[in-house]
Amino acid sequence: MTDYTDDERKTLRDAGFGAMMLVSQADPGFFAMFSESMAGAKAMAAAPAELRDLFKGGGLPSVPKGGAAEVESTVLGQLQQAVQILQTKSPQDVQAYKDVVIAACDQVAEAKGGVQDTETAMIAKVKAAVGA
Rank of each mutant, 00 (worst) to 15 (best):
S90Y: 08
V94Y: 12
G29M: 00
A43M: 11
A43W: 00
A46W: 01
K89M: 05
M44H: 01
K65N: 09
L60C: 02
G77S: 15
G67S: 13
D93H: 11
Q84R: 14
S37E: 08
E70F: 02
Q87I: 07
M33E: 14
R52G: 01
P61A: 04
A49V: 07
G40S: 02
A45T: 07
S73F: 06
A82V: 06
Q87A: 13
F31G: 12
S62H: 11
V71Y: 04
S35F: 14
K65A: 14
A69T: 14
E50Q: 13
S73C: 05
D93E: 15
G67A: 09
M44T: 05
A68M: 12
A45K: 14
E36L: 06
V94R: 08
V94M: 01
F55S: 02
A46Q: 14
G67W: 06
G66D: 01
G29D: 03
G59L: 07
S37A: 12
M44V: 07
A49S: 10
L51Y: 10
Q80N: 10
A46E: 00
A39K: 07
A39W: 00
S73D: 15
G66A: 06
M44Y: 00
G77Y: 00
S73W: 02
D53L: 06
Q81F: 06
F55A: 00
L54T: 15
E70Y: 02
Q78R: 00
A39H: 01
I85F: 03
I85M: 03
A68C: 03
E50T: 13
A46H: 06
V63G: 00
D53P: 05
S62A: 15
E70G: 06
T88I: 04
